[in-house]
Design a protein around this nucleic acid. Structure first.
Length: 882
RNA sequence: GGGCGGCUAGCUCAGCUGGUUAGAGCACUUGCAUGACAUGCAAGGGGUCAGAGGUUCAAAUCCUCUGCCGCCCACCA
């Protein structure tokens, strides 16, 4: 039954929560209640470090648009919701809050259990906020399968993965240099380092007077731990020293033994061509240390900086000083000894900082747990590194169906470059929040497994796992792995994944690693990489700055659909985009337009129980149904190409321009004609319903709210995506366009000569064979839309009066009768301008067409097109000239 | 040091597997309370597609170089 009570404007607040609840209750978020081919998306789990921001709104809009589109296409869609415990970041966040609350050292003051409890409280609060926000965003996820990277099932998956990797010899415990955050008192992986540009001072000096080689460094204090100087093997200046060991006094109580070694990696043309080697405090130098060891010509390793960021007792008289104090002291000593070879030089340097604790990373040697990415996996005959590369190139085992495709493609290159340079992954963290390393020790014994071992005296490793270890298994841990579940069988590999480019290395790479290793499967077939949302002036939204916008505020004010449209429009793969008030208003207006189109149709049609079959009669009928078909095809194709922005633009243009501005206006005239009324109403309903389905992936709430007005009790959410119906026909499209041009041209005259909108103008149409019937057929429509008297005459010849204005079109010339003679001069200028434009256009066309090479080389279709245009322009010019 | 992306209407961005007289939204100008919508309707104005070369019958679109802006990577001590 029609509802005449629909409010004039769509008020999102009145509908959204109720509709979401109804969707949930319907059970259609759960694929078990759907039929068809499985389609799965795993939601990138938001970190419980805080609440959701606009970036998450974008992600939810992307995922949900895809999920809803696939559901409408009859797929058995699974969208798994979840959150990430974000081990170190969450602990860092809570510690920061505690410290802001007055605590000096939360770890010391609270102890492990109490601090973990505090973090858990924070995480749980954050988690429940986040889950509520996801619902507010309208995301159609299956809440019965809700997952958390830190819940029991995921813990089992994590431990099992660790156990398998350990048994395959890929996870090992080793003493190597690590990236160390003094502030966070923990290691971090290479991927968690953020490089920042910083002013620094380069010192060039000799260790002692009798040492023959000059070196340079920005970290003089670490030179107290030097054990070698490396030179290029071919460097003639230093060749004679290679292999020699010098004992040098650096004024730190303990003399250093410096061996001169040869290394191909040293650039003889850079600086002094010699490199002081500090194995304990440099990644590169450590590699040299390892290389020397293997070659049977070992060098020493001295750790002079400790985990507290202070000099160790190995640094002799420097022990206990901070690195800055030690640097000043050592540089002072060098200076008084006259060892500085030249003035300290101010340079700009990239320095690695911890992404969460923000302090400068110290490189230190420690015993930690590592994942070897190069070692050959016994059962596979290749390394993790090989698997990661294969999955993005040839497909796993050369099987193209097991290939991950990234959109946009350029990120594939970035990924592969990174994989090529991958070092072993440091897995253990000294922070307390996270999956505890599943390893137990008892004396010399080590136990690795799922759950503590039998017997007394076992102690579990105190460290926790890098948080990305658990997120890496997300695509399958969410499906019940390591059990061979029905879900795993049906939904893995997942169908589609979307994420921001900033976690390409951190996450995408690790998902590929885990999935290819554990399942021999890719984690997903397609990965869509989106850019970052920035504020109006192009700045990054950041939590600390005040420019953060809460998506919930936006939803409250403009509605969820508007927010979704806003973040998706103008957003192309891999590129950042901006969020602005103007943009969200524009989106909100479109939502409201949809509402009002529906309001008009529901109010004017009466019986809304459409038969779903239509019988087009008029040109406009044929045209709108044809357009609907074209747009249906285009939209589907665009979504499948992940071009959401263009899909929305296509829909907007159809719904607003074609359907609302033209068809609805024409329909109003047709509704007055008893013979056309029924068929027109059927078409209005049909096009509206199909449009609601097309829009549903992007504006789920308003489409569902309107659908409800039909009173069928069904959900648009589980309707069928429109099928090609065979209505498109080119002739109708051309005719309608001609009709539009005619009406616009007459309106233009009114506008230009300031004729009152209400006044019906008198016109005469000069027609030819081709146009007479067409004009006659559309007499009513032309009269109403151009606001001219409907009794206009059609003639073949017309003697224009001085006061007549003429409008020249392809097969028809319209004379608008004016009350007085208009400014003849002005009109002459207008016509002359038009003639001039046409003439110059014709010239350029003629030039092309007379070009022999164009005629011989261009495709026939192009030539024909151009000739057609030439004919049209010539005809128009001829008429204008008379 | 290497690599990548961007530079198109006042603003935000499409178009870029070469071929419509280059598009959209917002903003702007003019007019309009028309009975779906002023969160609207109608009619308009506005761009030598960063610059310079080149390839081609034809370039915003392909190639080269330059200039800004931004991002990523790297063991330059």
């Amino acid at each position: 039954m029609p509802n005449n009570e629909m409010p004039k404007a769509y008020e999102s607040k009145l509908y959204e929560d109720e509709i979401y609840a109804a969707w949930e209750k319907s059970g259609f978020f759960n694929p078990d209640n759907l039929a068809g081919e499985p389609y799965s998306i795993m939601m990138p789990p938001p970190n419980v470090t805080g609440v959701l921001h606009l970036g998450h709104a974008l992600e939810n809009a992307l995922m949900d648009a895809m999920a809803r589109y696939q559901r409408l296409n009859g797929k058995k869609v699974l969208l798994v919701p979840g959150t990430d415990h974000a081990a170190l970041p969450t602990q860092a966040k809570v510690e920061k809050m505690l410290m802001e609350g007055g605590m000096k050292n939360p770890r010391q003051e609270l102890g492990r259990d109490k601090l973990v409890e505090k973090i858990r409280e924070f995480a749980e609060a954050s988690r429940s906020t986040i889950l509520g926000q996801i619902k507010k965003m309208g995301t159609s996820c299956d809440w019965s399968r809700l997952a958390y990277t830190f819940d029991d099932s995921r813990n089992i998956a994590v431990n099992e993965l660790f156990r398998r990797l350990y048994n395959d010899g890929l996870i090992y415990r080793g003493y190597r240099v690590v990236n160390w955050s003094t502030k966070g008192q923990s290691t971090c992986s290479d991927d968690e380092i953020e490089y920042i540009e910083r002013a620094s001072v380069l010192y060039t000096f000799k260790y002692s007077k009798d040492f023959p080689i000059t070196i340079a460094t920005t970290r003089p204090e670490t030179k107290l731990g030097d054990t070698a100087v490396a030179v290029h093997p071919g460097d003639e200046r230093y060749q004679k020293y290679i292999g020699q060991t010098f004992v040098v006094d650096v004024g730190a109580e303990k003399p250093l033994e410096i061996k001169v070694i040869a290394d191909e990696g040293v650039d003889p043309t850079f600086g002094t061509g010699a490199l002081g080697v500090t194995p304990a405090h440099s990644q590169v130098d450590f590699l040299m240390y390892e290389k020397q060891k293997v070659s049977g010509n070992p060098i020493g390793m001295i750790q002079v900086v400790g985990i507290d960021g202070k000099m160790t007792k190995e640094a002799g008289s420097y022990a206990g000083l901070t690195v800055e104090e030690a640097r000043a002291k050592f540089v002072g000593w060098l200076s008084t000894q006259g060892l500085l070879e030249k003035e300290p030089e101010e340079i700009v340097q990239n320095v690695g900082t911890h992404s969460r604790y923000k302090d400068v990373i110290e490189v230190l040697p420690m015993t930690q747990w590592w994942l070897d990415v190069q070692k050959v996996i016994p059962s596979k005959g290749k390394s993790l590194h090989d698997l990661m590369a294969e999955a993005l190139t040839t497909g796993l085992d050369g099987d193209a169906s097991k290939k991950v495709t990234i959109t946009p493609e350029r990120f594939t290159k970035l990924y592969l470059a990174r994989v090529a340079n991958l070092r072993d992954w440091c897995l253990s963290r000294q922070t307390w929040w996270g999956h505890r390393i599943p390893v137990w020790y008892r004396g010399e014994e080590t136990f690795v497994g799922n759950g503590s071992p039998e017997g007394d005296g076992w102690e579990q490793d105190p460290d926790t796992l890098d948080t990305w270890f658990s997120s890496g298994s997300w695509t399958f841990s969410t499906l019940g792995w390591p059990e061979k579940t029905v879900d795993l069988q049906a939904f893995h590999p997942t169908s589609w994944m979307q994420m921001g480019y900033e976690i390409l290395y951190l996450w995408l790479m690790r998902m590929v690693l885990m999935s290819t290793y554990a399942l021999g499967e890719i984690p997903f077939k397609d990965a869509y990489i989106h850019g970052m949302l920035r504020n109006e002036s192009g700045k990054k939204f950041s939590k600390s700055d005040a420019n953060g916008i809460d998506p919930l505020d936006i939803i409250e004010k403009y509605g969820c659909d508007a927010l979704r449209l806003c973040v998706l429009s103008g957003n192309t793969p891999g590129n950042d985009s901006r969020f602005s008030v103007e943009k969200i208003e524009s989106s909100r207006n479109f939502v409201n337009k949809m509402w009002n189109i529906s309001r008009f149709i529901l109010m004017s049609v009466g019986d809304t129980t459409s038969s779903n079959s239509v019988a087009p009669t008029t040109v406009a009928d044929h045209w709108i149904l044809g357009r609907l078909e074209t747009v249906t095809n285009q939209t589907g194709k665009l979504i499948e190409q992940f071009d959401f922005s263009l899909a929305i633009e296509t829909l907007r243009e159809f719904i607003w321009n074609d359907f609302a501005d033209w068809y609805l206006e024409i329909a109003k005239i047709q509704q007055k004609d008893e013979a056309l009324k029924t068929s027109t109403n059927e078409i209005l309903l049909y096009v509206l319903k199909q449009s609601l389905i097309l829009c549903h992936p992007f504006m789920p709430f308003v489409s569902e709210a309107i659908w409800k007005e039909f009173g069928t009790g069904s959900f648009v959410m589980v309707e069928k995506w429109p099928k090609v119906n065979g209505f498109f026909d080119e002739a109708s499209e051309k005719q309608l366009v001609a009709l539009q041009e005619l009406i616009i041209a007459i309106r233009n005259v009114r506008s230009q000569y300031k004729i009152e909108p209400k006044k019906l103008m008198d016109v005469v149409f000069v027609v030819n064979e081709a146009s007479r019937e067409f004009i006659e057929l559309n007499r009513e429509v032309i009269a109403a839309l151009a606001r001219v008297n409907a009794d206009f005459v059609l003639v073949e010849k017309y003697e224009a009066a001085a006061s007549d204005m003429s409008v020249v079109l392809k097969d028809v010339t319209v004379f608008v009768k004016m009350e007085t003679v208009v400014d003849a001069e002005k009109e002459k200028v207008r016509v002359e301008k038009e003639i001039a434009e046409l003439t110059s256009y014709l010239e350029s066309v003629a030039q092309k067409l007379s070009n022999e090479e164009f005629r011989s080389k261009a495709p026939e279709k192009i030539i024909a097109q151009m000739e057609e245009k030439q004919r049209e322009a010539q005809e128009k010019l001829k008429k204008l000239s008379t």
